[in-house]
């Protein structure tokens, strides 16, 4: 297995939030196989982002163990982890005074942290990452001149330049309009198909997750509510009880994947 969560629990420090809900994640167990696309879905505060922060060791679990390629992640150094897991964080990229090429080359840091300048091998890898995400022509453009979709592809290219075994994306389409959402979904599928890259996609967008993922993990209140193929997890009554609203699940005519539509009645 590429990733294994074994009975992982996590609680945030003492706060009003914690008193209301002691554990952000409780007894969570799941796996990601090499080459698999797994989606994590669930309502607000269900533990989706906490899961990513645990996997990337920004947080340490209170109980349980997380393994990456068989090794407990707490035994890996930060650079070891960054060579295996590339993360596209939530939100827009902070205002940074670099161009696209500079940003993507930063993804090569874990492959030579002692180097002052990147090696020719680093440049080749960054170029390949920009080609794969379609931003090679934008390499010399400052990041603040890009559209939202271009910027997101540049950030994905930076994560790809890490040459990770697992690409983790936290709400990758949150700030994008429909066209760019479709673009990002197509890119993820292509990366998975052509490179065999495993992907962990955390998203509020159930239809994006249904369209892109092989398997879904539905979280509710920090616990696993359901896991399995999108057709299994995206069940009308299950989703209605987890999200607390009425909704309809159809099938896409084009892809035969589930499509979730709210009825707009609470």
């Amino acid at each position: 297995m590429l990733v294994e969560f074994r009975s992982v629990s996590f609680a945030y420090p003492e706060s009003a939030e914690r008193r209301a809900r002691p554990f952000a994640l409780s007894e969570l167990s799941f796996e990601i196989a090499p080459g698999e696309i797994v989606g994590v879905i669930g309502p607000n505060s269900s533990g989706k982002t906490t899961l990513i922060r645990l996997l990337t060791r920004l947080l340490e679990p209170a109980a349980g163990e997380i393994r990456l390629e068989g090794a407990p992640i707490r035994q890996l150094t930060r650079t070891d982890l960054a060579r295996r897991v590339g993360v596209v964080p939530q939100g827009t990229l902070a205002q940074v005074p670099f161009n696209v090429g500079d940003l993507v080359l930063m993804g090569r840091y874990p492959h030579g942290p002692g180097r002052y300048f990147e090696s020719p091998r680093d440049r080749t890898s960054a170029r390949a990452a920009m080609e794969a995400t379609g931003v090679l022509d934008l390499a010399d453009l400052p990041l603040d001149r890009l559209s939202g979709g271009e910027r997101q592809r540049a950030v994905i290219a930076r994560a790809l330049a890490q040459e990770p075994r697992l690409l983790v994306l936290d709400e990758p389409t949150a700030y994008l309009d429909l066209r760019y959402q479709v673009e990002v979904a197509a890119l993820l599928r292509r990366l998975n198909r052509e490179r065999g890259m495993a992907i962990l996609l955390v998203s509020h967008d159930l239809n994006l997750a249904a369209e892109v993922c092989d398997r879904l993990l539905l979280l509710a209140g920090g616990r696993t509510a359901a896991t399995g193929a999108p057709e299994v997890v995206l069940d009308e009554s299950l989703l209605a009880s987890v999200f607390g609203c009425e909704l309809i699940v159809d099938k896409s005519e084009a892809t035969r994947r589930p499509i979730v539509r709210p009825t707009w009645r609470v």
Binding site: L58, V96, F98, F117
Partner: peptide, 21 residues
């Protein structure tokens, strides 16, 4: 540490995710 300082421009958390202590 000039190269690491470039990565810090992306935010401390992103720098950590890229392997910077």
């Amino acid at each position: 540490h000039a190269r690491e300082l470039n990565l810090m421009a992306l935010g401390e958390e992103t720098a950590l995710l890229l392997g910077v202590g």
